[in-house]
Design a protein around this nucleic acid. Structure first.
Lengths: 134, 134
DNA sequence: CATGGTTTTGACAATCATTATCAATAACGC
DNA sequence: GCGTTATTGATAATGATTGTCAAAACCATG
């Protein structure tokens, strides 16, 4: 049987209250910072459960960490600066449509998708342009 | 100065001769299997260099490993069955264009993107339809 | 409310990929 | 061939994630 513990709720709430993606470690830190004595392993387990039950999406950050996002809270994507971490929310109607179409074409159902764009934000691009050339 | 070593060539060749994506570990194993005494750290370094110089693309596998691909072999995305793991390669010209456009609109440069569609493949959809209902 | 059967938790060890270290080696210009 | 210096590779270190297992919490029941 699946039991309801405050820990699981805490993780779910924390994830719901988070804008974009967050790593398990970061979520654990955030919970600790807000006074929760929740264990790290438990956060991993709770996130895994949420992902398995479809309440959260999981993908790999460019740094190799698993990052999670609440699945129900409105759907949008992110444009993330790989240097400073700046995150811009982007609507992606075209991509929604596209994703459903390609899924359907292959006979796939229950399509979900992970679409995120990484790049260098204007600021970091400028800095890179200044520093990089010989 | 950048020196030319047989190790680097071996990694480049091995990557060129590989169909899709391959992890650093797997590439190292493959090289060893074909008699190369190349070291693991060197494979990581060579792959990192290739990625840095744009000769290879790098992304994170769902299992959390970094996987690499020779850059010339066309860019595509994946449609992944969340139940059986079946993976279908999908072309996504629209999405490529879209990603670059939204990145540019926000002043972002060097856009890369993570686009993967998860769903239930035809087979698993059918099984789910049979098994799930009470 | 106390009890019991299970699930869940959490501290810690174990694992796995990746990166850093650093002496020895090999490549390249001369 | 020589010397300089980037590169290699064995190993240790790091960091995220998962496994372990006794103790605690949850929930239905008496």
């Amino acid at each position: 049987m699946k039991r309801n513990t405050w820990q699981r709720e805490a993780v779910r709430d924390a994830l719901d209250g988070t804008e974009g993606f967050i790593s398990a470690q970061a979520l654990h830190s955030a919970l600790h910072a807000s006074g929760s004595p929740i264990g790290l392993a438990t956060v991993y387990r709770a996130l895994g459960d949420l992902a398995a039950s479809g309440d959260a999406d999981c993908l790999q950050s460019p740094e190799g960490e698993a990052i999670y996002r609440a699945c129900s809270t409105g759907h949008h994507h992110h444009l993330i600066c790989r240097n400073c971490g700046l995150t811009v929310e982007i609507a992606a109607d075209e991509v929604e449509t596209w994703a459903q179409r390609v899924a359907a074409e292959q006979g796939f159902t229950a399509p979900a998708h992970v679409v995120d764009v990484f790049g260098l934000c204007a600021e970091c691009s400028r800095q890179a342009a200044e520093g990089a050339p010989a």
